[in-house]
Design a protein around this nucleic acid. Sequence first.
DNA 1: ATAGCTGCAAATGCTTTGCAAGGCC
DNA 2: GGCCTTGCAAAGCATTTGCAGCTAT
Lengths: 124, 124
Amino acid sequence: MLIAHGLRPTKQRRLMARLLFFSSGRHIDAQILHNEAYKENERLSLATVYNGLREFEQAGLLRRVAVPSERAWFDTDTGPHRHFYIQSENRVLDVKNDAAVTPPPGYRITHVDTVVHLQKIEAD
Amino acid sequence: MLIAHGLRPTKQRRLMARLLFFSSGRHIDAQILHNEAYKENERLSLATVYNGLREFEQAGLLRRVAVPSERAWFDTDTGPHRHFYIQSENRVLDVKNDAAVTPPPGYRITHVDTVVHLQKIEAD
DNA sequence: ATAGCTGCAAATGCTTTGCAAGGCC
DNA sequence: GGCCTTGCAAAGCATTTGCAGCTAT
C-alpha cells in the first residue's frame, strides 16, 4: 500500500498505516495517532507523525477535514461524504445517510458549512 | 449596530466595523483587517483585531469560514451560503448562484467539503 | 467614577524544519 | 554504500492572555 503510493515502507510509516487503516472511517489528528503509537509501546516522534500525515495526505491516502478546530483532522475515508462536527467535544463524525442529514440523538444542527475547493486550470 | 449587539462602540471597534461592513460580502482574516487599518493611518494592535473578530463572531456579526487554511477566515455575510476556496491563492469566494455550483472561469472543482455543525441539546 | 477596552509583549499550541544519526534498497 | 527517513529540539506562525494605562458612559 505504501509502495503503491510512492512511500518507502519504513517502520514508522508501516505503524502509522496499521493504526490508521486497521478499522475504517477513522477521524484522527496528530496527537491521537501519536498516543495510539505509545499505547502499542512503539516509539514514534510527534514530528514524524506530522510529517507522515502530510505525506499520506499528499499520497491520497488521507483527506484533511475542514473543521474550525485549532488542530488538523484527517479522515481515512477519501471518498466524497459529509461530516458532522461537534465543537464543544472537538469530535468529527461521518454523515452516514447519503440522502438526508440526520443529526445523532441529543444533538441539533446549528449551521452547515460547504466549501467547494478549486484549482487553477493550467494553460497549455 | 455595535450597541445593538452588546458591544461598547469604542474607536477601534467602530473602525473595524467600518472596514468590515462598508462593502458587503467580504472575506477577511486578522492580517488583512490589520493592514487595512494601517492604510487608513489608524493605529490598531493585531491583538485587538483578533479579539475584535472573536467578539464580532460571538455577537453574530461575522461567521467563521471552515477553510483548511492555517489562518482563520471570517465572512461578513452570516446567512446560509456556500464558498469557493482556492488553496494556492489562499482566497475565499462566495458561491453566487444558489442552485448550481459553477466554478469561476479558469478554475475546476477538486472536491467539496461539507461540515454540519452540531450542538448538544441541553436536558431539561 | 468605574467597568470595560486597548496595547504591548509574553505565553501558548499546533506544525514545520535543521541536522546528525540510523535504516532501507 | 548512498539516499531517504527519523528523532530531537528549536524555530515558526497564528492566536490568546496578563496587566498597566486609557476611555466610554
